[in-house]
Design a binder for these strands. Structure first.
Lengths: 337, 337
DNA sequence: CGTTGCACTTACGACGTTGTAAGGTGGTGC
DNA sequence: GCACCACCTTACAACGTCGTAAGTGCAACG
């Protein structure tokens, strides 16, 4: 039903290629011809067929964004930022969710569903360092996050260790000494959890504060409910603490709720700091002090790197780059200076 | 670089079409041949070229989802649900944001960026009833939301009036009589704001409670900050109130924060109810009583309707359907029964 | 041993677009 | 009035896939 170049050409009385030239702003078209063709285009409501264009050019103008899930605020806000940045390059974004499941993550990398994209931005949560080799795919790929290092692809990460260290130092500077940490993943040596834990440890060591293992609370996931559970367990353990460091904002917010329910005042009795600076953090009661890990900049660099790889036809990057972005402690009510 | 049917055919010593038949599980292929072709496919790592397939078939397997913005939790969770549902139909989702800007909304409807999709699910926020005619596009379109009614397209909405009425009745049943409403859009007669206001009015009237205009607070947008501002204005106005109905959860949460800052106890002094049932609502302090408008079901029906329209080649629906989904009051701490 | 029929395979073209190279048209200068 | 050049337009092919229709070979049957 839709009009094609052929239809327009027939109506305007020119060849198909001349219409194509008009559509693509090819310079050598006589004004009178251009006008006539444009009239035919308008009359028929012609729109280029992008599938045909993709086939011809080998580019689809689509990039993939592979995320654990959209209902986690951090990823929703990251997706928003990626879409915005992609748009400025004239690209459109397909979002695929993996549910943090390793098998689904691997499936997405080989799936024909992603075959139409020009490249993919991938934030794994189920795969680990051992899977690094599987990232050697034959399409442009930019990796986000801390699950895997040294893979054969470009990589953009936040400065987890430094940022977590800064968060902990901030609490120490405010006079807190019994700082609980929520969200540890004891079995990992890489990944956000391990790196942020490392920053926490570094800060304590540097300040001469001994680390009490009873204050390091693991959780399986990083949702609010996990933070709430961990806070409950922490309270029940009887360990004394005057601050809580949630390894992400959702954990911190979940913990904050339980702490308040238990009658503790925030920040007087317990200071709380999070990590991610999701929009909600500033509207919580009390507002949540947290680390802004540079989400906007991550999205921007990831898209820019991907566009660059797409542009250079070289199949695999000879020089995979690893970039980190700046972070910042956002001081709010839950942990004042 | 990528292998094509041609490459596979050459390697397997068969024709291109036979390879195609293998790929597409065409039944009449001799097992021995199939095996040989499959081996060649595996060896070359052949993946079908989706652009070519799209061109040939006229279907891209992509649907568009046009939303105001992803960083609003309601839309993020809606997007998540749409992606999940689309996946079950083998479809992939492109997300486009409009920022609730009418011009951008109109632009998206005619944009070549959406041309590659088989159909679009569209949630307008800037366009209004006067623009209904502009929805007569030449691709399958399913409309979400309450900005426009009676357009030439399928339409899925929540039951705004009934749900808002139920929320208000719930507060009335709990003994509240001075119920403030936050988020009104006085200039509208359609749209979520107007409809939910109508439900509120209906409930008050039915209960014989007179509506005090001083308790109906307008906001421009529906973000947390707007809810906070409106609550501040409400307090400063000096009007007495014992409950707040936020026309969405973000407004209610923003208001709840300000109410608590002002020393009011929730729910003792002021009961608060929201609308949307975003995930965050159950983790707020106190947890937010709200209306679940049936988001999952909306996503499901929208995708199903779209798939149906895509399937039937009829250009325009002769019988645009308008579906509504079930809602439910989620009773939590901010407004107990 | 030829014919028929079936199971399998193939050649061809078209989907709509654009790069290439060749073709046409008008105008300019002598 | 002719040649030439610059400008504009065209025909053709190809991107990779799959539907159509036309083959091919083999087995069974007469």
């Amino acid at each position: 039903m839709a009009a094609t170049l052929h239809d327009v050409a027939q109506l305007a009385g020119v060849s198909i290629k001349t219409v194509s030239n008009v559509v693509n702003d090819y310079p050598h078209v006589r004004p009178a011809t251009r006008e006539r063709v444009q009239a035919a285009i308008d009359q028929l409501g012609y729109r280029p067929n992008l599938s045909a264009r993709s086939l011809r050019s080998g580019r689809s103008g689509v990039i993939g964004l592979v995320l654990p899930e959209l209902s986690l605020s951090y990823f929703a806000e990251l997706a928003d930022a990626v879409i915005t940045q992609a748009e400025s390059h004239g690209l459109v974004v397909i979002i695929e969710r993996t549910g943090a499941d390793r098998d689904r993550e691997l499936a997405v990398l080989t799936s024909p569903r992603m075959r139409m994209t020009d490249g993919v931005i991938f934030s794994p949560l189920g795969m680990g360092q051992d899977d690094a080799g599987l990232l050697a795919v034959d399409f442009p790929l930019v990796l986000l996050g801390e699950r895997i290092f040294g893979g054969p692809v470009d990589h953009v990460t936040m400065r987890n260790i430094e940022a977590a260290r800064a968060a902990t130092e901030f609490l120490l500077a405010a006079g807190r000494r019994r700082i609980a940490l929520i969200g540890a993943h004891p079995d990992e040596s890489l990944g956000s959890a391990a790196l942020r834990l490392k920053g926490y440890e570094e800060a304590l060591t540097a300040a001469g504060v001994s680390l009490d293992p009873a204050l390091v609370r693991p959780t399986t996931l990083w949702h609010r409910s996990n933070g709430a559970e961990a806070a409950r367990a922490l309270i029940e353990s009887g360990a004394a603490f005057d601050a809580v460091f949630g390894l992400n904002d959702a954990l911190a917010l979940g913990a904050m709720r339980v702490l308040q329910e238990s009658g503790r005042r925030i920040p007087e009795d317990v200071a709380v700091i999070g990590f991610d600076n999701i929009e909600e953090a500033q509207y919580a009661v009390p507002s949540l002090t947290t680390v802004d890990p540079g989400r906007e900049q991550i999205a921007q660099r990831a898209v820019d790197l991907l566009v660059q790889r797409i542009g250079s036809d070289s199949s695999r990057p000879a020089d995979p780059s690893h970039e980190t972005v700046a972070f910042q402690v956002m001081i709010r009510e839950s942990a004042p200076a």
